[in-house]
Nucleic acid binder design. Structure first.
Lengths: 218, 218
DNA sequence: CGCCGAATGGACTCCGAGGTCCGTTTTCCC
DNA sequence: GGGAAAACGGACCTCGGAGTCCATTCGGCG
């Protein structure tokens, strides 16, 4: 793990380096544990132990568990966007999309489809019981889709995509295929459905390319 | 106190009509509550109250909460498959798929994208903590996809779809788009992403039609 | 150095949710 | 009608997880 500046302090209380580091450890541990066990199934004692802190630290940095979860939503969102920005900000070609797809599939295949997308799993667990978390997740998804649609816009501007291609809708469709793929892969404990889903979405985008490559529709 | 029925093979307990009805009420209540609040956030007391039963009844019919949840997975799966069978078993045309799409979208728009698919929401919550539930959900998804792929097979056999169309993959892609659409709609509290996702999948299937019909979907 | 607030450890309280138990009522079958 | 088992009501127990508190240590700054 490299540098992470994603744990932004909230209030303007004086916070020492040490305090920031502890807060970071807590979020990092919560992130790991809650990805595997889910939010509700993870206890504060689990997090306390995994983060090598104490009960008082948890409540020193977060008002209660709900606040910790909300902070985690932002933390995880920032991590995902940071990772995705690296893979998408220079997207300019269809093969770039394919590389992006392959990276996601490979990462998920490492654990046989388990755990899925950190954002997607929180969404279904939180969005109907914490409005703040829901809107935060919704914004993150929007930002993620924007990274994709920006790339598609560049492809359209450079003449790779037809003018009637709608980058926003294509990005939404791709994101849905990705999330649905994560979900089915998680249920099956097998990445295959995720691959099929992403390939469908890529094929759909491909159909908007100005010059369909080589042979007619495989 | 001792059991006189020594020769009794297993616990093939007699179950009365009344007992079956109570069990049904419990499952029905659990189904309703857990769809809204999630599995872990729903307590047995909630279910007891909503089902007009008592604690002893819950434990008379189910060994513990985990068993109740497992039963719910099957129960909900059966409900979904029953509903989907009605809408898909006579699928023979592309317009049939469009009607199926419209029905799902309309149902989900009634609550602005909230709650999502009963199967999908359980999947992310349970599949990493209850192997039995996971495999049960996985089977249900497979059966659901089969309903779709069977229809696509019929369309291919009747010459509507090209021979190189792969009904299984198309069905998986459609299911992923549906589940991903549910998830994004849930996050956004807006059905729009679900529509976009389903339209993408339908457009993809459409690209395998022997003679692409005039106008676009919807 | 000495002060003060941040940072920390960890014992403790409180409550709610899962699970148990037993006495009572209903149903089934002879 | 009567007996046995199923169905039932609900008080009760237990435990674990959220949240509190306070004494202690650390660290930055005059």
């Amino acid at each position: 793990m490299g540098d992470e500046r994603v744990a932004a302090p909230t209030d303007r209380r004086r916070i020492s380096q040490r305090g920031v580091a502890t807060r970071e450890r807590i979020l990092e541990a919560a992130n790991r544990l809650m990805l595997v066990r889910g939010v509700n199934a993870t206890t504060l004692d689990d997090i306390r132990e995994a983060s090598q802190t104490s009960k008082s630290q948890l409540y020193h940095h977060f008002a209660d568990k709900q606040e910790l979860v909300r902070a985690l939503v932002k933390y995880r969102g920032a991590l995902v966007l940071q990772r995705e920005r690296a893979g998408l900000e220079r997207l300019r070609s269809f093969s770039g999309l394919v590389r992006w797809r392959n990276a996601l599939v490979q990462a998920n295949s490492l654990n046989n489809g388990k755990y899925g997308c950190g954002l997607g799993s929180m969404t279904l667990e939180l969005s109907d019981q914490d409005e703040q978390a829901r809107s935060s997740l919704s914004e993150t998804f929007a930002a993620w889709e924007r990274l994709i649609s920006d790339g598609l816009h560049r492809m359209r501007d450079s003449g790779l995509l037809r003018q009637d291609a709608d980058p926003e809708k294509l990005a939404t469709g791709l994101m849905a295929a990705l999330q649905g793929g994560y979900l089915l892969a998680n249920a099956a404990h097998d990445v295959a459905p995720m691959e099929v889903a992403l390939d469908m979405a890529l094929e759909h985008i491909k159909s908007f390319l100005v010059q369909p490559s080589g042979e007619p529709t495989r």
